[in-house]
Amino acid sequence: MIFPGATVRVTNVDDTYYRFEGLVQRVSDGKAAVLFENGNWDKLVTFRLSELEAVK
């Protein structure tokens, strides 16, 4: 189960963010908004829950 605050990895091989890890900001309607941070940039991207896996 994916909840806000969880760290997730993108599993969709066709996505630009494949294998990126980010922090879930919100979850609704089968989608999750994931925040990616890297140095001087932040990006908030929405994914279907089926495209994400929780990082242990």
Rank of each mutant, 00 (worst) to 15 (best):
M1I: 09
M1G: 13
I2W: 04
I2E: 01
P4T: 07
P4H: 04
G5I: 02
G5W: 03
G5C: 07
G5F: 04
A6K: 05
A6P: 01
A6V: 14
A6R: 06
T7N: 06
T7Y: 12
T7W: 15
T7M: 13
T7Q: 08
V8T: 01
V8L: 00
V8S: 00
V10D: 01
V10P: 03
V10R: 01
V10A: 02
V10F: 01
V10M: 02
T11P: 02
T11W: 04
T11V: 13
N12E: 04
N12T: 07
N12V: 07
V13F: 07
D14L: 13
D14Y: 12
D14K: 12
D14T: 10
D14E: 12
D14W: 10
D14C: 13
D14N: 13
D15I: 05
D15S: 15
D15H: 15
D15Y: 04
T16Q: 14
T16K: 14
T16H: 12
Y17W: 13
Y17N: 04
Y17H: 08
Y17S: 03
Y17D: 02
Y17F: 09
Y17P: 01
Y18S: 03
Y18P: 01
Y18M: 02
Y18L: 02
Y18D: 02
R19Y: 08
R19V: 03
R19N: 15
R19P: 06
R19F: 08
R19T: 09
R19Q: 14
F20M: 14
F20C: 14
F20N: 06
F20S: 08
F20I: 07
E21N: 05
E21T: 12
E21Y: 09
E21K: 08
E21R: 07
G22T: 01
G22V: 03
G22H: 01
L23T: 14
L23D: 03
L23I: 15
L23F: 07
V24L: 03
V24R: 00
V24P: 00
V24Q: 00
V24S: 00
V24C: 05
V24F: 01
Q25L: 15
Q25K: 10
R26V: 12
R26H: 14
R26G: 09
R26Y: 14
R26Q: 12
R26E: 13
R26D: 11
V27N: 02
V27D: 00
V27P: 00
V27F: 03
V27M: 07
S28Q: 11
S28L: 10
S28N: 09
S28W: 15
S28I: 11
S28F: 15
S28C: 14
D29M: 08
D29Q: 09
G30L: 05
G30N: 07
G30W: 04
K31H: 13
K31P: 01
K31L: 13
K31M: 14
A32V: 10
A32D: 01
A33I: 14
A33G: 05
A33L: 15
V34F: 01
V34E: 00
V34Q: 01
V34A: 00
L35Y: 10
L35W: 11
L35C: 10
F36P: 00
E37N: 13
E37D: 09
E37Y: 11
E37V: 14
E37A: 12
N38C: 15
N38D: 11
N38E: 11
G39S: 09
G39F: 08
G39W: 08
G39D: 10
N40E: 12
N40Q: 11
W41N: 10
W41E: 12
W41D: 10
W41V: 12
W41P: 13
D42K: 15
D42G: 14
D42M: 15
D42C: 15
D42F: 15
D42W: 15
K43G: 08
K43H: 10
L44C: 12
L44D: 04
L44H: 05
L44G: 03
V45A: 05
V45D: 03
V45L: 08
T46L: 12
T46K: 07
T46I: 14
T46D: 12
T46Y: 14
T46W: 15
T46A: 06
F47R: 07
F47W: 01
F47N: 03
R48K: 14
L49M: 07
L49D: 05
L49A: 04
L49R: 01
L49N: 04
S50I: 08
S50Y: 08
S50A: 09
E51M: 05
E51S: 07
L52Q: 00
L52S: 00
L52F: 01
L52Y: 01
L52H: 00
L52E: 01
E53S: 06
E53D: 05
E53G: 04
A54M: 13
A54E: 09
A54D: 05
A54C: 11
A54L: 15
V55P: 03
V55C: 06
V55T: 07
K56N: 13
K56R: 10
K56G: 12
K56T: 14
K56Q: 13
